[in-house]
Design a protein around this nucleic acid. Structure first.
Lengths: 191, 191
DNA sequence: ACAATACGAGACGTTGCGTCTCGTCAAGGT
DNA sequence: ACCTTGACGAGACGCAACGTCTCGTATTGT
């Protein structure tokens, strides 16, 4: 139906920007497609043409907002995880990513796109950022060969989601506690 | 306005039962107040008189559904936590509590009653079930005196919420992993 | 018996949904 | 240069559920 090559990049950017603005102003739940369209100076159909739902649109907003650009060196798993988490939390603090993430987790109970993003995509899986580097560390002997990477990633994601959902602090201290909990003992003093 | 002493217990029970039925049949998100009223043979106003919102009603449904009746003995913190978690997960498996919990966590981003239940009430705090017994174990020397009970409870709750939200398994194996992660080392072989 | 009020039923206005139908416009093909 | 195609802005449209309200009836305590 819709031909991606004919899509207007300017409109897309205006819509994403309007969505980001509105969430900062009135909160995720209060944002409507109609308000985004009005703010962006765009017809409703132009939004519905390219995104299935409000949640689908915000998956894109969130992805653009939380871009992990520079990966720290994997010298030590503990240092790596701490650095990556602090980087993400700094991005959270500088943007409206947290309310968007909370809204997306919430919408995932109703919306297929949000659910998929939550379980497999950027938001939930975090494969390239968390699981993959840790798996590499296992192969390199920086972590025990039988270290359960998937479980570690699940714990980290769970703790983050919980604070996002209940409004807890997402600061560097929290990042350090996650690292300590997820890599408890491994490569540390207990071993 | 509304006088609790004149409230009809039969109507209340019918409403709660209808709400529980409907969530099992069509899922939390699809349930409407109007459908609950129709199913319970009740006027809409009778629901709105006693509950602020759908979420507020389901907080009560969930509370009735997940009643931890018998507390296991606190001989060993690991055994205690394992027993209590298995008991809760068995209740989850026997009822529609999981979709309700997922719906409530979702609604907590929009609804004040759900948010309060999530942060302070039965759902999020879990004080009497988790934190309090662990705190007692600390005083009794069954856990290190500097053991961080709040952090342990937060981890357990976070892991449960994450699986509830993303549709993961809530079985005895998961219960054991939570215990191992939350009480890692404490009272175990590493210490 | 009487006052107070919970209750069933359903009308009511409101909001946002997602679809649709216009007329306009820009781009690519012939 | 013309013509087709499809994106676009604007907004009308029907729909569903919200939360409030107003009836008339039933129940309860004094």
């Amino acid at each position: 139906m819709a031909d991606p090559s004919r899509r207007s990049p300017a409109k897309q950017a205006a819509i994403v920007a309007a969505a980001a603005q509105l969430v900062a102003e009135i909160g995720y739940a209060a944002v409507t497609i109609e308000a985004i369209a009005a703010r962006a100076g765009v017809g409703k159909q132009t939004i519905y043409r390219w995104w299935d739902s409000k949640a689908a649109l915000y998956v894109e907003v969130y992805s653009q907002m939380v871009q992990v650009d520079e990966f720290p060196d994997m010298v030590d798993p503990r240092r790596y995880m701490g650095a990556i988490l602090r980087q993400v939390f700094d991005l959270y603090a500088a943007t409206s990513a947290v309310p968007i993430l909370a809204g997306l987790i919430s919408d995932a109970q109703r919306d297929d796109v949000a659910r998929h993003a939550l379980v497999h995509g950027l938001i939930g899986g975090r494969g390239p950022v968390l699981a993959q580097p840790l798996r590499q560390a296992c192969r390199d002997g920086r972590l025990p060969a039988d270290f359960d990477v998937d479980w570690a990633a699940e714990m980290a994601v769970a703790l983050i989601w919980k604070r996002v959902l209940s409004g807890g602090a997402l600061d560097h201290a929290f990042a350090d506690r996650i690292v300590a909990a997820v890599l408890s003992g491994e490569g540390g003093p207990c071993r």
